[in-house]
Design a protein around this nucleic acid. Sequence first.
RNA 1: CGGGGCAUGGUGUAACGGCUAACAUGCUCGCUUUGGGAGCGAGUGAUUCUCGGUUCGAAUCCGAGUGCCCCGACCA
Length: 410
Amino acid sequence: MRQSKVFTKTTKEDPKGEEAKNARLLMRAGFIDKEMAGVYSFLPLGLKVIRKIEAVIRKEMNETLEASEIFMPALHPLESYEKTGRDDLDILFRTELATGRSLVLGQSHEEVVVPLAKNHIFSYRDLPVYLYQIQNKFRNELRAKSGILRGREFSMKDLYSFHVDEKDLNDYYEKSKVAYKNIFENVGIGEDTYMTFADGGTFSKYSHEFQTITEAGEDLIYLCEDCRVAVNEEIIDEQDSCPECGKKKSSLKKKKAIEVGNIFKLKTKFSDAFDLTYTDEDGEEKPVYMGCYGIGVGRLMGAVLEVTADEKGMIWPEEIAPFKFQLIAIGEKAEKEAEKLYEEYKEKIDILYDDREKPVGEKFADADLIGLPYRVVISEKTLDKNSVEIKKRGQAEEKLVKIDNLESYV
RNA sequence: CGGGGCAUGGUGUAACGGCUAACAUGCUCGCUUUGGGAGCGAGUGAUUCUCGGUUCGAAUCCGAGUGCCCCGACCA
């Protein structure tokens, strides 16, 4: 894409008041726009990142977990929440129909997906079922904070699994750990993300969170570096050692972290509430076992930045960068060559070509801010050697690459 | 929801209770310029968050409200 055609502009100054790194950089670079506290618009460049993160998630959902994508409504009848006892949650946004029927804005979708599943699950032959969606959630947080890390309206992937029994749920639950691990690796924060034992609620000993180590986080976790798992502080009193190797609390490392995903065995909590049952081989009616599995998409984007960005700007992992290459030309002769290269490669590769009438320094500064993986500079100097200069964002050294060899980089 | 901070052109900031609210940046036009936010000139842009009060006079003082940020509480 030509940078002159990008809708947003960058700013040199941090937005007033923002402290969170993700908010400062995303707003400066024109990736997002704040509508109000905890509510953001995603602008063209920011949306490209969101779409790429979604693609990483969808791949694991579709392939590893064999789930089907659906799309459920954001408007939910309050009665469903009365059935599950969640109608008194204070994070619920409440509204009503013109007729007076009470509604809430969806903060999660168990209350929708279970009645929905009831229309399609009758027999053991219909199970298992895996349904997911990527949709906005609405939570009336008392305090939104940390840029896009804790919002009131935010995009989330939520998967719900339905099983004949607890064993089948457990097997799938283990598979979901693998899928989640893949996702966090593929978006570039695998090294910093730990599967974390957390409160399992009434029916399970544990649930599992995926926590990314960052000072911007709001949870405290105790991590075991050998096993690459952690324990959330909220259960550290009951579980005061590494659940995998038994290492004591005193030798675990205490770190701040942000929860980027969680998986939870619901068992029959919600199926009981809605009487979701199936008939087994012996003609006996049994409750459906359920699991739920969430990933905050926008939060994940923010978490990546908190981990990777430096003082000059963002540094996007290749898989989720809005573009792969940043092309900058210096001087008229180089501009002609850049035009040629851009036209030649734009169909094959995600490239952002800075064709703006701006001083070079500003182009470099914006390139650092936007943080595409590779910066390609063409100038008279490089053209003398029939080359372009390629620099990886976040690394100091640059190297000359012959124009004829560029193909191998695509 | 408790505590703290802040609110001034699009953006970031300045301004003792007193002249036409200043500076930088952005934006527009012209010329020049191109290896790290470039130069000269001419323009453009404000209900100083809102409401009320004090005062001869309020961006400035007082009261209330609203919004934003931070700490805490809360948070499948």
